[in-house]
Nucleic acid binder design. Structure first.
Lengths: 334, 334
DNA sequence: CTGTTAGCGCATTCAC
DNA sequence: GTGAATGCGCTAACAG
């Protein structure tokens, strides 16, 4: 049926080992026989069976990506970076989407026991200690993206810093009544970023001598609709904020809609800064904190491949910078 | 190192064949030995090595998904359906993203020759005849999603019908000056849907006795920004349209923005209907034609798995229905 | 430099 | 019912 290494060997009049050597670029083959083998390969239209190779080498040539809710724009963009970096490698990308804690645990167990991936990228999730131990024992390197565990390699951005920068930006514009809008943290996955943004926010307020007002600190479901409601609530306060820092662009958009509905112009009546710099941000002229999403995917792949190639060593830590992208939704306090 | 079937066999005091039988649910094993084997498996924490199984069975237990620009929301949603359906199966999902014709051809060649996938889902792309022949020869079933080739199984929606429905909706509201906004078709991938939408549009106009006006037919780059410009151009016409059918929700949003900028209210001054029913559509209260994106992914997986299990046969064709979702952006002609 | 051989871990005849 | 033996296609010692 399919043409195998043996067919090529016969055709070229050599042993299968020689064919294997040619395929794998082993230098100890005479130029002459190499040519003969290459010709045979060409004529027979041969390509090595990857599965046999995998069994033989004991490697799967596969990288797994564990991602919660991969359809969320942040994750899509990270995935894009991962896909991009992996496309140029010999590794296949297999996607594991997680929508419930049960799924998460199932995949963790599955992937650490079965011989399914050579390495795993984990987005915005932190495995438990036993799970980490299992991967370690199975000798499967892990790289966290946008999540932190002291023993694991990771690619992160400093969200506390991001929160500081956003807040600093508003303070520099003269604002003092600055609200924070973020996703609620009763989510089963409880992503760390928003909480860290809040830390940066409160730290920077503190540094500026601005008291934290709890009525300016609102949380709700992720998504525009919810953010719009929160925005309306904020703007209905007796002393409404003059600026809002939203822990995601999606929520920033919701807040802007609330402002518009209430007859408030942005940025004249209300400054809004988002977080993430998602696709729509530029288009909507939204001031935001740029997060290197695509780049984080690329970097994570680089780190993981290094870990796969080299013997295990110290965790590799890459921290990518964030910066404010000042566009049209923030302005000096009126 | 890792525990193998041999370890289990030894532990249970049986041959490896028996262990294999137990694993694969072969009935010809006595209940007693089955229990013994299961215990051994449990104690040793054994899981079969999938790669060895793949080599032995000659199947990869892998499904490939070929998708152009997978970050576009339409594709993300289809991918979600695919992922969802595949998660419950024994198959891995490996993602191949395509951004250039060269990449497309490379993957087609690669996947048809190498033993990498048991089947392939192809989104919005049609392979060439030689490529189809190659897959056929390699015995790798193909399922097209949102694309048509007479010899291939596929899951589609009737975009001509979709275009008719959208146009009919506007006509029923009394509109006669109806414009069509779509992506330009000088794209190297030239997705078929927009063109078919246009066919439905022009067919329905014809049926209603409304002449097609070429100044009402505008095309431009995919994306909001471009659509906004087209919208402005349309609304600046001496005799501007009273309604716009956009071949994608993204473009519909751009048109709505153009209307707002020019002081026209939607739907009072301008009716807008989109296409796709993407996530934002409901939120923005956009009237649109619902496309079963998620469902198309699920169905495609079902078809593909059937094709993998069963001997090749007639192409399986699934056509999913579309329908207008009437929301707040269309109204009777003023 | 090159061919022979021995696995990789499992499924699967084929005898018993 | 069950075990021993063979092979899936390839890589990697090991001899020559």
């Amino acid at each position: 049926m399919a043409v195998t290494i043996r067919d090529v060997a016969k055709r070229a009049g050599v042993g299968i080992a020689t064919v294997s050597r040619v395929i794998n670029g082993n230098p100890s083959v005479s130029e002459e026989t190499r040519q003969r083998v290459l010709e045979a390969i060409e004529e027979l239209n041969y390509t090595p069976n990857p599965i046999a190779r995998r069994l033989s080498t004991g490697r799967t040539w596969t990288v797994g990506v564990l991602v919660p809710f991969f359809t969320l724009p942040e994750f899509v963009k990270r995935l894009q970076g991962i896909q991009h970096a992996l496309a140029e490698s010999a590794y296949d990308l297999v996607l594991f989407n997680i929508e419930t804690p049960a799924q998460r645990d199932k995949y963790f167990l599955d992937l650490s026991r079965n011989n399914r991936v050579d390495g795993l990228l984990i987005l915005s999730l932190v495995p438990g200690e036993e799970q980490i131990a299992a991967f370690d024992e199975a000798n499967i390197p892990l790289v966290l993206v946008d999540a932190v565990h002291p023993d694991l390699s990771r690619v992160t951005v400093n969200h506390v810093r991001g929160g500081e920068l956003a807040t600093e930006h508003l303070i520099a514009l003269g604002h003092r009544r600055i609200a924070f809008v973020g996703p609620s943290d009763d989510d089963p996955f409880r992503f760390a970023a928003p909480q860290q943004c809040f830390q940066g926010y409160s730290r920077m307020l503190d540094a500026a001598g601005i008291p934290l007002r709890k009525e300016y600190h609102v949380r709700g479901a992720y998504g525009r609709e919810s953010a719009r409601k929160m925005g309306r609530a904020l703007l209905s306060l007796d002393e409404p904020p003059t600026a809002v820092f939203a822990a995601s662009d999606t929520q920033a958009i919701g807040v802007m809609e609330a402002a518009r509905e209430m007859g408030l112009r942005v940025p004249e009546g209300l400054s809004v800064i988002g977080y993430g710099d998602l696709r729509d941000a530029e288009y909507l002229n939204l001031t935001t904190v740029h997060q290197p999403l695509f780049e984080s995917g690329v970097e994570a792949v680089n780190v993981l491949l290094a870990l796969i190639e080299d013997p295990p060593r110290e965790p590799i830590v890459v921290e990518l910078p964030v910066h404010v992208v000042s566009r049209g939704t923030t302005a000096p306090r009126g």
